[in-house]
C-alpha cells in the first residue's frame, strides 16, 4: 500500500476551521463548512489541505473507485452531547441531530469530492486510526477500491474526555503498491492489529512480532504506548514522540516517521484502554530524507 499524500492539523477547540482552508479551496468549502459539525469540518479541512498539496491525487482518480475509511475513538460525542443538551433543554436541534453519527464525515467527504467508492467507519478506541489503515489495505488488496482516503479525526471535549484537549485530524491518500515509485511518499509494508482483553503489552507484543523485517527498525510511539507496552517494547529502539490523543495518534506518528525517513521505519501505538494494539511497518523512499 503506497502513501501518495498526507496532511495533518491540530486546532484549538475554539478556533474557526475556515482559517485552515487552503487558498484555492476556501471559496467552495467555506459555506459547507458552516453547516457541518466540528468532526466533519476537521475531516474536510484536512483532506482539502492534502489535495491542495498535490492536485494530481484527485484528478488522477475516478470518484466511483475511491473508498473512504474513517477512524475515530470518540467520533461524534461532542455533537451528541450538544444535541442531547438541546433536547434536555426542550429545544432539540434537528441540525445537530443530523450529525450524531460517527460516519458523518464520510458523507460530507463523499459529497464535497464526489467520491462514491466504499465507505467504512471504524471506532475501536485509540487504535481506530491504524485499524482504519488496516481496512483500507484490505479494500485495496481485494480490489474493492483503486484508491483509498483514510482519515483519523478527534474532537476535543475537555469536560467529558480530559485526554482530548485539541481538535486534530490526519488524512492519507493510499493506492495499491504496483511498483511505480514516482510520486509516492512511502510504502506501508504491513499492518497488524490485535485485541487482548486487559493486557495491552501482550497485544503489542503480538503485533510487533508480526511485523516482518521490523526487528531492527526504530519504533515510533508516544508516551502512552511506552507506559502500556513497556514489557513488549523492551530491547527495542524507541523514537518517543508527542502526538495528539485518540485515533489520530497512530497516523500522526506515521507522518512523523515519513518526515524523519528512517529506513525502514516502524510505527506502533497502543490504545489507552490497554486491550488493543495496532502497528504498521512503513518504508520511506530516500527522496523524503530531510523533508
Amino acid at each position: 500500500m503506497v502513501i501518495r499524500g498526507f496532511a495533518r492539523l491540530v486546532v484549538a477547540p475554539t478556533e474557526p476551521l475556515s482559517t485552515y482552508l487552503p487558498d484555492g479551496s476556501a471559496a467552495e468549502l467555506r459555506a459547507p463548512l458552516l453547516r457541518m459539525d466540528r468532526l466533519c469540518g476537521l475531516s474536510v479541512v484536512a483532506v482539502a489541505r492534502m489535495l491542495a498539496e498535490d492536485s494530481s491525487l484527485r484528478s488522477g482518480a475516478i470518484g466511483d473507485e475511491v473508498a473512504i475509511v474513517l477512524g475515530s475513538a470518540h467520533g461524534c460525542h461532542k455533537t451528541d452531547e450538544e444535541y442531547y443538551r438541546s433536547y434536555l433543554q426542550g429545544q432539540p436541534s434537528p441540525r445537530l441531530f443530523a450529525y450524531t453519527l460517527p460516519s458523518s464525515p464520510i458523507g460530507e467527504l463523499s459529497i464535497q469530492y464526489r467520491l462514491r467508492g466504499p465507505g467504512l467507519t471504524v471506532t475501536m478506541g485509540r487504535t481506530s486510526g491504524l485499524c482504519a489503515l488496516a481496512e483500507a489495505d484490505l479494500l485495496l488488496a481485494t480490489h474493492q477500491a483503486e484508491a483509498c482516503l483514510v482519515v483519523a479525526v478527534e474532537v476535543a471535549q475537555p469536560v467529558l474526555s480530559p485526554v482530548l484537549l485539541q481538535d486534530a485530524a490526519v488524512a492519507l491518500w493510499l493506492t495499491r503498491d504496483e511498483g511505480t515509485r514516482s510520486s509516492e511518499l512511502g510504502t506501508i509494508e504491513s499492518v497488524s492489529d490485535s485485541f487482548c482483553a486487559g493486557r495491552g503489552s501482550v497485544a503489542l507484543g503480538r503485533v510487533l512480532s508480526s511485523l516482518h523485517g521490523a526487528s531492527d527498525s526504530p519504533i515510533y510511539c508516544d508516551e502512552e504506548t511506552v507506559r502500556i507496552g513497556a514489557a513488549a517494547l523492551e530491547h527495542r529502539t524507541l523514537q518517543r514522540q508527542s502526538a495528539p490523543a485518540g485515533a489520530v495518534s497512530g497516523l500522526w506518528l506515521l507522518t512523523e516517521a515519513l518526515h524523519d525517513a528512517g529506513e525502514p521505519s516502524a510505527v506502533a501505538v497502543v490504545d489507552d484502554a490497554g486491550h488493543a494494539a495496532a502497528a504498521l511497518l512503513v518504508r520511506s523512499p530516500s527522496v523524503l530524507r530531510g523533508v
Partner: peptide
C-alpha cells in the same frame, strides 16, 4: 470479544 478471546475486533458504524 474479551469474553470470547477474539483476536481481531472491529466496531463498524455506517
Amino acid at each position: 470479544a474479551a469474553q470470547l478471546g477474539a483476536e481481531r475486533v472491529r466496531v463498524i458504524s455506517t
